[in-house]
Lab assay of single mutants.
Amino acid sequence: THFTSQQLQELEATFQRNHYPDMSTREEIAVWTNLTEARVRVWFKNRRAKWR
Protein backbone atom coordinates (compact mmCIF):
# COMPACT_ATOMS: atom_id res chain seq x y z
CA THR A 1 0.00 0.00 0.00
CA HIS A 2 1.25 3.45 -0.89
CA PHE A 3 0.43 6.15 1.62
CA THR A 4 0.05 9.81 0.82
CA SER A 5 2.20 12.30 2.71
CA GLN A 6 -0.97 13.48 4.51
CA GLN A 7 -1.75 9.93 5.65
CA LEU A 8 1.83 9.34 6.79
CA GLN A 9 1.85 12.63 8.67
CA GLU A 10 -1.30 11.64 10.57
CA LEU A 11 -0.04 8.10 11.25
CA GLU A 12 3.37 9.31 12.44
CA ALA A 13 1.84 11.99 14.68
CA THR A 14 -0.36 9.38 16.33
CA PHE A 15 2.58 6.98 16.66
CA GLN A 16 4.56 9.65 18.54
CA ARG A 17 1.75 9.88 21.10
CA ASN A 18 0.87 6.19 21.30
CA HIS A 19 2.74 3.18 19.92
CA TYR A 20 -0.17 0.83 20.70
CA PRO A 21 -3.47 2.51 19.73
CA ASP A 22 -6.62 0.64 20.67
CA MET A 23 -9.34 -0.41 18.24
CA SER A 24 -11.39 2.79 18.57
CA THR A 25 -8.30 4.96 18.00
CA ARG A 26 -7.34 2.92 14.94
CA GLU A 27 -10.89 3.29 13.60
CA GLU A 28 -10.72 7.07 14.08
CA ILE A 29 -7.37 7.19 12.25
CA ALA A 30 -8.88 5.08 9.46
CA VAL A 31 -11.69 7.61 9.02
CA TRP A 32 -9.30 10.60 9.07
CA THR A 33 -6.91 9.01 6.57
CA ASN A 34 -9.49 7.27 4.37
CA LEU A 35 -7.84 3.89 5.03
CA THR A 36 -9.27 0.67 6.44
CA GLU A 37 -8.74 -0.17 10.10
CA ALA A 38 -6.80 -3.26 8.98
CA ARG A 39 -4.37 -1.10 6.96
CA VAL A 40 -3.88 1.17 9.99
CA ARG A 41 -3.30 -1.85 12.26
CA VAL A 42 -0.67 -3.29 9.90
CA TRP A 43 1.03 0.10 9.55
CA PHE A 44 1.39 0.37 13.35
CA LYS A 45 2.67 -3.22 13.57
CA ASN A 46 5.32 -2.50 10.91
CA ARG A 47 6.17 0.89 12.41
CA ARG A 48 6.73 -0.65 15.86
CA ALA A 49 9.07 -3.24 14.30
CA LYS A 50 11.02 -0.43 12.61
CA TRP A 51 11.09 1.57 15.88
CA ARG A 52 12.74 -1.31 17.78
Rank of each mutant, 00 (worst) to 15 (best):
E28W: 13
T4E: 04
S24I: 12
F3G: 02
F15G: 02
R26Y: 09
A30F: 03
L8C: 09
R17C: 14
Y20S: 05
K45R: 12
Q6L: 11
R26N: 02
L11S: 01
R47S: 03
W43Y: 02
R39I: 15
L11T: 00
R41C: 07
M23I: 09
L11Y: 01
R52W: 10
R47H: 03
P21M: 03
R48V: 06
Q6T: 09
Q9T: 08
V31W: 09
T36H: 03
Q6D: 10
S5R: 13
V40H: 00
E28F: 08
T25K: 09
W32K: 15
R52P: 05
R17D: 08
W51G: 07
R47Q: 04
T36A: 05
L35N: 05
M23V: 08
N46H: 12
V42N: 12
E10D: 11
A38W: 13
E12C: 05
S24F: 09
N34S: 08
R48N: 04
T14R: 15
I29Q: 00
Q16V: 08
Q7D: 02
H19G: 04
M23H: 12
F44P: 00
Q9N: 08
K50M: 11
Q9A: 13
P21E: 02
T4S: 09
D22F: 02
W51F: 11
F44D: 00
T4A: 03
S5E: 13
S5N: 11
F44R: 00
A49T: 07
T25H: 06
N18D: 07
I29Y: 02
L8E: 10
R52S: 07
K45Y: 10
S24R: 14
Q6C: 12
H19I: 05
F3I: 11
L11D: 01
Q7C: 06
R41P: 00
L8F: 05
F15M: 00
T25C: 14
E10T: 14
R41T: 06
R41L: 07
R39D: 15
E12P: 00
S5T: 12
F15P: 00
Q7V: 09
H2E: 12
K50C: 09
T1V: 12
Q6N: 08
N18Q: 06
T33M: 14
K50R: 12
T4M: 04
W43H: 00
H2F: 11
N46S: 08
R48Q: 06
W32Y: 13
R39P: 01
Q16E: 08
N34R: 07
E12N: 04
T14V: 15
Y20D: 04
F3L: 14
N46I: 12
F3V: 06
A13E: 10
R26P: 02
N46C: 14
E27H: 12
L35R: 02
I29D: 02
K45F: 09
A13G: 06
A13K: 13
T14D: 03
E10K: 15
R47V: 02
H2L: 10
W43L: 01
V31E: 13
H19Y: 05
H2I: 09
Y20T: 05
V42C: 15
T1C: 15
W43R: 02
R41H: 07
E12A: 02
W51L: 11
D22V: 05
R26H: 02
S24Y: 10
H19V: 04
Y20C: 13
A38L: 14
D22S: 09
S5Y: 13
I29P: 00
E27W: 09
R41F: 06
R39Q: 15
S24A: 14
Q6H: 11
W43I: 01
S24W: 08
V42S: 12
R17I: 11
H19Q: 11
A49C: 10
T14Q: 15
N46G: 07
E28G: 06
L11W: 02
V40D: 00
P21S: 02
R39C: 14
E12I: 05
A49K: 14
T14M: 15
L11C: 03
Q6K: 12
V31C: 14
K45G: 05
W43G: 00
V31S: 12
R41A: 10
E27G: 06
K50N: 08
T1I: 11
R48L: 07
T1S: 10
I29A: 01
R47G: 03
N18A: 04
S5V: 12
D22Y: 03
Q9Y: 11
T36P: 07
R48E: 03
M23D: 05
N18S: 05
R41M: 06
R39H: 11
Q7R: 03
T1H: 12
E27L: 14
L35T: 13
A13V: 08
Q7L: 06
T4V: 03
W43A: 00
Q16C: 09
V31Y: 13
Y20R: 05
Y20K: 04
A13Q: 09
R17G: 07
R52F: 11
W32I: 15
R48I: 06
E27K: 15
Q6M: 10
N34G: 15
D22C: 06
F3N: 03
H19L: 03
N46P: 00
V40K: 00
R26Q: 03
V31M: 13
E28I: 11
T25Q: 14
K45A: 11
Q16A: 11
R48W: 04
N34L: 06
A38I: 12
W32A: 15
T36C: 06
A30M: 03
E10A: 15
A30E: 02
R41E: 07
N18I: 10
M23S: 07
T36R: 01
R39S: 14
W32H: 14
A49M: 10
E37L: 05
D22I: 05
P21R: 01
R39V: 15
A13N: 09
W43C: 02
